[in-house]
Simulated scan of single mutants.
Amino acid sequence: MSDVESKIYDIIVEKTNIDRAKLTREASLSELEISSLDFVEIVFAVEEEFDIEVPYNANTQDQDFKALGDIVGAVEKLVEERG
């Protein structure tokens, strides 16, 4: 597990109180029952933690993030691009 993935999971646990053992790249946001409000809070916390801007628009319910692996992959790419 990468540092990015671990930090994202820490943020999710902090914001939702979901058991960390349930967090895998394959886990879908819907099966984890992450609400849209919780997801927005997670996005803000991830942006702050990594000093990036995640391309997510809560008004359009962007479907790019269906599973945790989608989020981890996007953040890893943004962190890499930032240098």
Rank of each mutant, 00 (worst) to 15 (best):
N57M: 06
R82G: 06
K77C: 10
I18N: 01
A58M: 12
A58C: 08
E49N: 13
L29Y: 13
E41T: 05
V72S: 03
S30C: 13
D19W: 07
E5W: 01
E5K: 11
I18W: 01
A74T: 15
A74N: 12
D51H: 09
S35I: 13
S36F: 02
I11S: 03
S28G: 02
T60K: 14
S30I: 15
I18K: 04
E5P: 00
I71V: 15
V72Y: 01
N17P: 06
E53S: 12
S36K: 03
F44P: 00
A45H: 04
I34G: 12
T16Y: 03
I52Q: 00
E33C: 12
D51I: 06
G83T: 03
N59G: 14
D38L: 09
E41K: 04
E14R: 11
K77D: 12
M1N: 07
E14H: 05
G83F: 02
D19C: 14
I12L: 10
D19R: 15
I42D: 00
V43I: 11
F44V: 12
A21G: 11
N59R: 14
A45L: 04
T60M: 14
G69C: 03
Q61N: 11
G69L: 04
T60L: 14
D38H: 09
L37S: 08
V54Q: 01
V43E: 05
V75I: 13
V54Y: 06
M1H: 11
D62Y: 03
V46M: 04
T24N: 08
I42L: 00
D38P: 06
A58G: 10
V13S: 05
L68V: 00
S6P: 07
E80H: 10
Q63L: 14
L37G: 04
E49H: 10
V72G: 03
T16E: 03
S30F: 14
D19F: 14
S28N: 03
E76K: 13
L29P: 09
A27I: 02
I71E: 12
D70F: 03
Y9I: 09
K22H: 10
F50S: 01
T16W: 05
T24V: 05
E80R: 11
T24D: 06
E14L: 14
V72H: 05
R82C: 00
K15A: 09
Y9T: 07
L32T: 02
A45E: 09
S30D: 15
F39E: 09
K77T: 13
E48H: 06
T24W: 05
I34V: 15
E14C: 11
V13P: 02
N57H: 11
F50I: 04
I11E: 04
V72M: 02
F39S: 06
E26M: 08
A67Q: 13
K15I: 04
K77Y: 12
I34R: 07
I52H: 01
D38Y: 08
E81Y: 03
M1L: 12
D38M: 11
L78T: 06
V13W: 04
A74R: 15
R20A: 15
K77A: 14
K22S: 10
I42S: 01
S6H: 12
L37P: 02
G73S: 14
A67R: 15
K15T: 07
G69H: 01
M1S: 11
S6V: 14
K22L: 15
D62R: 10
E81K: 08
D10H: 01
V46L: 01
E47D: 09
T24L: 03
D64W: 07
